[in-house]
Amino acid sequence: MELAKRLCDTFGPAGREGAVRELIRAEIKDYCKDTTVDRLGNLIAHIPAKRKNAEKIMLCAHMDEIGLIVTHVDKKGFLRFTNIGGIFKERILYERVIFENGVIGVIGVETKPETPERPRMDNMYIDIGAKNRNEAAAMVKIGDIAAFCEHAVVLKKRLLAKALDDRIGCYCLIETIKKLKSHKDDLYFVFTVQEEVGLRGARTGAYAIAPMYAIAIDVTDTGDTPEASKMAVSIGNGVAIKVKDSGFISNPVVKEQLVRYAREAEIPYQLEILEHGTTDAAIIQVVKQGILSGVLSIPTRYIHSTSELCDWADVDATVQLLLQVCKRGLSPS
C-alpha cells in the first residue's frame, strides 16, 4: 500500500495537480509508449494495440482533490478562505492545512455570541502562525491554494487517508498499467485534472482522444456505517459497478460487459446506485458524438473529509476487473 499512501499524501488540489502528475508519470512512463501532458494538465498515457483497427478505450481517474483558496489576509495575519470543490464546512474546523510551499496552518472560527451555531466558511479563518499581515504575506498570498495535511495510515486491510477521492482510482490505473500482460484495444490511461470543480479535465481529454469507450475509476459512498442513509454498497464487498448516479446513467452495454467479466473471472463486485454526486463519466459520455461510458467505483466512507476509508480487497478487485477489460475489450462479442 506504500504507493497508494504516497499518492494520497501528495499535494494536489484542483488546478494544482503538478506534484501528483509527476509522481504518477515516474511510476508509469517505462510501461507506456508515451506519456503526454495536455494544455489543461491532464496526463495521458498511451499503450497502443498490437492489432490493426483496434478500438480506443479511455480509462480515467482524477488527480485533483478538494482544497481551500485564500481570499484575504487580515491585519493580524489570519487568512480568510473559500472552498475549491465540495467542502463540508462542518468537517473542517481545527483541521490542519498545507500550502504548496509547505506552509502549514490550522482552521479556526470566530467565537462572538452572534457567530452562527453552524458557522459558515466566512466565519472561519486559517492561522499560519504569522504575527501580522506583513509576516503572513511573506508566507502566503491571495489565490494560494491549500490541501488538508492528514497522513495516510493502514488499518489492518483498510486504508485511511485524505484524497482517496480519487488517488485510489489513480492507484488502480497505475497497477493496471504495471500488471498488464495482454490487451486487445488501443488503451489511453488518462489522469485528469479539476474533476472536483466541474469535471473539467475529463471533457477536454476525452475530446482529444475521441475513444469508442470510456471507464472512469472513482470512489463512491457506502451505506454500511451506523445509522447511515440507505445505500446498497459496503466496503469490502468488491468493486462497485455503477448503474447510475445523479449525473450519469451507465451505458447498458458497457455495464453488462463489466458485470459479465466480473462474474466470469470470479471478481467480487456490487452494483452501485449513487443518489448524490457524479464522476468524470458524466461529462465524457456527451463529448463529440457521444462516448459509451461506464464507471468502476471503490466504495469509500467519509468522502470529502480529511480521513476517507476504503478496503484493500475492493482495490484489488477493481484492478482485476480493469485487467479483464484491457484483455477482452468492451465490444459485445
Partner: peptide, 23 residues
C-alpha cells in the same frame, strides 16, 4: 490587482473547455 478568488465567471470559463482545452 487580483480578483477575489472564486467569485463570478467570464467567457474564459467556456473557452478553456473548448475542444482539447485552451490555456
Amino acid at each position: 490587482q487580483f480578483k477575489k478568488p472564486m467569485i463570478g465567471g467570464t467567457d474564459a470559463g467556456a473557452i478553456h473547455l473548448t475542444r482539447e482545452g485552451v490555456r
